[in-house]
């Protein structure tokens, strides 16, 4: 099946750094794809690049982002503007500051309806109330005239989702949508996103650093490290048998309920070093921190290749599943 969104060789540059390098992935209709990685891995920049909303100094050096046979990166700005919010919508990490404090909720939702769907003010207001109902905000009529400061963080994120879903976009990008929320609210918001995905059959691109979310809410996971994709698999397989040394490290470093090695009884595993060490690498960016590195890891960047059970991985090490997994049974109980 041809993907709805096809990203090829996306490279993002700052004047003195390249935070995303040759990233390729596809997103099928109604699929939920998660991009996970630690801070600085380039996942948020990737999301912003898809919207062409990169901050001032950042620039898309090369790549293609195909949506509906159009290369989004090649569209004129005016044309791109008409796609934002209509075909491809985005919600952000900080619900507390992502809404304009001086405008009513109703106005902020109606705005996008009037812009892309040409509704009148009255129609947009009615539709906005329905959207608030869709994202399960109690008393939607009253909420329309409220200002954002009267709403809790979880409610504001629901409003953000209502705005994003207003024009029934094909793709919804959620950049760390629950990071600023507390745990019970997190689950509600993700459940809402998942329900909308099914009801509106939109594709969801979930950007997160929280591996715990991925297993439950994503169909497929891309693990990024220092601007590169290191592994791509379905979450079940990834958690059961992580291939890439970085993925294995990440999973080993996650505290889990059924672990023998609970952080109360033993130290939590860690990946030695930090992501800054990737900047100076000629070869694999993870090489300085990798427990399994070979001589050529220092000099050659590993290509992405197919591995068993429909997964892709970028690593020089011989990653047969039998040789992995066994001594990493810590990951099994995920």
């Amino acid at each position: 099946m041809t993907p709805l969104l096809d990203v090829r060789d996306l490279t993002i540059c700052f004047p003195n750094a390249t935070p995303v390098r040759n990233l390729s992935f596809g997103l099928a209709p109604a699929e939920a794809l998660a991009i996970v990685g630690e801070s600085g891995s380039g996942k948020s920049l990737t999301a912003l690049a898809l919207m062409r909303l990169l901050p001032g100094a950042a620039r898309i050096a090369s790549g293609r982002v195909r949506l509906d046979n159009d290369d989004l990166l090649a569209l004129p700005e005016v044309e791109m503007r008409s796609r934002r919010g209509r075909d491809i919508a985005m919600i952000f990490q900080e619900p507390m500051t992502s809404l304009n404090p001086v405008l009513t909720i109703g106005r902020q939702i109606a705005e996008v309806l009037q812009l892309h769907r040409g509704l009148t003010k009255a129609q947009a207001r009615r539709e906005a109330a329905e959207l608030l109902d869709l994202v399960r905000i109690p008393n939607p009529e009253r909420c329309l005239d409220d200002h954002p400061h009267r709403l809790s963080g979880g409610m504001r994120q629901r409003v953000m989702i209502a705005i994003a879903a207003a024009c029934r976009p094909k793709i919804l990008i959620a950049d760390e949508p629950t990071t600023a929320l507390d745990v019970t609210i997190q689950a509600q918001v993700l459940e809402l996103l998942d329900r909308l995905r099914r009801e509106l059959s939109l594709s969801l691109l979930l950007i997160t650093h929280d591996l715990g979310l991925v297993g439950q809410w994503a169909d497929r996971v891309i693990v990024m490290y220092a601007g590169r994709k290191v592994e791509e698999a379905s979450p079940g397989i990834l958690f059961e048998r992580p291939l890439h040394p970085y993925t294995r490290g990440l999973l080993a470093a996650s505290p889990r309920l059924h672990d023998r090695l609970h952080y109360r009884s033993a130290r939590l595993a860690e990946i030695p070093g930090n992501i800054a060490s990737a900047a100076t690498q000629a070869g694999c960016p993870f090489a300085p921190r990798c427990p399994d590195r070979l001589a050529r890891c220092r000099t050659n960047v590993p290509d992405e290749r197919d591995a068993a059970s429909g997964r892709r991985v970028a690593c020089h090490v011989d990653l047969t599943e039998s040789s992995r997994g066994l001594h990493h049974d810590a990951a099994l109980s995920y």
Binding site: R84, F92, T97, E111, M160
Partner: peptide, 9 residues
């Protein structure tokens, strides 16, 4: 919120 506005198109 200005970024949100830009993301609205």
């Amino acid at each position: 919120y200005v970024r949100t506005a830009a993301a609205k198109g």
